[in-house]
Design a protein around this nucleic acid. Sequence first.
RNA 1: GGGCGAUUAGCUCAGCGGUAGAGCAUCUCGUUUACACCGAGGGGGUCGGGGGUUCGAAUCCCUCAUCGCCCACCA
Length: 900
Amino acid sequence: MADAETPTGALEKTFSPGKIEERQYARWEQSGAFRPRGSGEPFSVVIPPPNVTGSLHMGHALNNTLQDILVRYHRMRGFDTLWQPGTDHAGIATQMVVERQLAAQGIGLDRGGAAGASNARLIGRREFVERVWEWKAESGGAITRQLRRLGASLAWERERFTMDEGLSAAVLKVFVELYREGLIYRDNRLVNWDPKLHTTISDLEVEQREIKGHLWHFRYPVEGDPDTFITVATTRPETMLGDTGIAVHPDDARYRHLVGKHAILPLVGRRIPIVADEYSDPEKGTGAVKITPAHDFNDFEVGRRHGLEAINIFTADAYLNDNVPAEFRGMERFAARKAVVAAMEAQGLLARIEDHVHMVPHGDRSGVPIEPWLTVQWYVNAGELAKPAIKSVEDGRTVFVPKSWEKTFFHWMRNIQPWAISRQLWWGHQIPAWYGPDDQVFVDYDEAGARAQAAKHYGRDVELRRDPDVLDTWFSSALWPFSTLGWPEQTPELRKFYPTSVLVTGFDIIFFWVARMMMMGHHFMHEVPFHSVYIHGIVRDERGQKMSKSKGNVVDPLDLIDRYGADALRFTMAALATPGRDIKPSPARVEGYRNFATKLWNAARYAQMNGCAIVPGFDPAAAKLQVNRWILGELRRAAAETEAAIAEFRFNDAANALYHFAWGTFCDWYLEFTKPVLNGADASARDETRATTACILRDLVKLLHPFIPFITEEIWEKLGLGEGLLMTAPWPTLPEASGDAAAKAELDWVVQAITEIRALRSEMNVPAGARLALGYKDASAEAAARLKKHADIIRTLARLEHIEEERGAPARGAVQIAVPEATLVLPLAGVIDAAAERARLGKEIGKLAGEIDKMDRKLANPGFLAKADPEVVEDQRERRQEAEAARSRLVAALERISAL
RNA sequence: GGGCGAUUAGCUCAGCGGUAGAGCAUCUCGUUUACACCGAGGGGGUCGGGGGUUCGAAUCCCUCAUCGCCCACCA
């Protein structure tokens, strides 16, 4: 077991993520490395604040992994990096949770509604809010602990909460200022009312659900003519009790004669006018539509145009109120529906009932149908605030990635409606508005200010009532990029880190959050809140379903971390984060990347066991051995690909480039190539290889660190690959070295030769342990030189006894393989028979002939020669030549065999 | 009703104008002192259908089909 106290030490035989993660995270946090370093270009990211009482789900795991990759990458590149942490008070969500807990204890909220009246004990606002703070204290640390387990390198000392003192001050200032500018105002209009939660919700919190309902046709008698009826169709019979008109289309000949007359509203007896309005669609229903201005958004507009009365018939619980006939009062809305239909039928006024599928608005939190309800609420003039936000995206000052989201953003922003911000809840920022006896409103920073205003207004001191409502949670989140940096104080952090560099989030909150941050950022900071917005996909389950508790298909990221380690989960997230696509992580995938971590671990162990260590002053670019120069070139290519990919948020490409380099190139080839060297007699070659291996490993863990920080930090530490922490080590700079191309050409050829020999051994079922000689014919001088130079490597990896130049005819039973510039000959007498070999060669030749034929046709095409890129044509010619050379060597080989 | 995206190997997905790829699964072989959470090799796809543009199309355009998501006031 390794000694945790010593900076370097032997890596343990098996890689166990759990222990490493805890220890390394503590080292990072204690070192202060999460803080901005204080110098360099700023790079800043604000976390999308999770609900303070929430717990980590897969969406968080994805979102925060990607942010951490960007943050760690930039930190290593020398940026003054801040990742701002914090949590959100999540008004409705949190209030619901605590209400439910209280209900379980028989405690209800004294909010004046009918619901919950059965509770034994009712508590008031102050006590409830205290309970919520208690709940926050109890559960509030969970999410931040879980983010630590993921490895998130957030500047924890700067953690903020949307309800903390500073952020509350920011909210207050924004509200008061917008009010004074006329951009926040009160209005009496229809709102989306949630009868279960007893609060207004914004348009965005409403979701349309498809409901199989009915279309009821009611006959309304026309006044003054007992035999004439006008038939209306409705999906909501109960609202007829609030009807104050009937609308028909002005061009609808069926009803033209009735326009201007009145109908008598059945069950109620009210005289209601029949009006002509474009809203009415002759194709729908009966072409005559009943108008209920107080309970339907369209009807409200129609009513306004024709001066129709808006009669509210519902209580806050959506029970019928006293504005309806006595027999219906106090009925719940769905009971009322049945009662109304029954009463209409009894009077012979129910014409018919059709099945009807339609969309019904539901509260996204409560899940109950919302009720359009006429009340006075606070609004933000979003249309005005949206203008500079739209412009900044048009100008490219804020860029969406992928760019296609800009279209969605524009569409919504250009059609934006006033934002209803007041909520009839207790948990949240209480609106700083006070009312006088005559309901005159006074908005100010505190009650004293409001009283002063009132005194001036009334000419005397008056008692004021404070507005009981709180603000929409998204109101405070909208300020997040500057409020967390200290605004309204002009802090050094605010000056340095605003605008932030990039916002990383899912598309589901573009409207809720991103758009509103842009509005507020422009208005109060006069600058975009972030330069780019990276929109990632949503995490779905393996069948492509959105994860949700109700579906029971939730995968717990903490469970995956327990099983496979945080690094494996992170790498999975990165590897699957293809821009613009949703993510469906499977445990098999996570397991695969756990295996990758293990592979890296073992490679490091191997290096350690072989005495590979950093040699001060050693420059791998000056290495003499071609393998060492080659691996450096491969590393350089992988690094360049990684950097390019991260710059464009192609996390998947970055992860894959590193995966393939680390496993497919470094482990599978380089470490195997160098085994003969490390076991060989040439001391200087050995030393050079050890030093090179250490350098490659050092740079590799640097490149991988943003993705898999824990294991790389552990390897860095245990192998003593550098000073201090890896997380603050400088990103590798790998300049191009001369001779790179030559090394690549040479080693690529060796790889190909070995691969061919291995394939042949496997196909021919050459028994294990059979020692073979390799001869080569027709080899060009270059190929012959390579075979000689890399004889050790080729012998070892292809499991050969020796290599020599074949001069005479191949021995009976020899097998011949064409590689570029040479024909390799393996004596397999007694192992395979000549007939089988002839067949194999014939097949190979046939395959090549097919390819050559295809290329010939292409090269004979005048259009291709004239119009294709000359490089492409040249490339095609070269490939044809190679194939031709290989074919003729195989034909020769076949002849040699046949001659035996 | 608008808008967006998807359809590529058994599965999950890359590739998005110039030789069809990866991981997993599958099959064969392998006790070579880093690693069986491994190594070597193999099989498997007319890139949803149909048109078009192009010397050349999985890749661009049109169209159809199927699936998914977002927005929308359809009585």
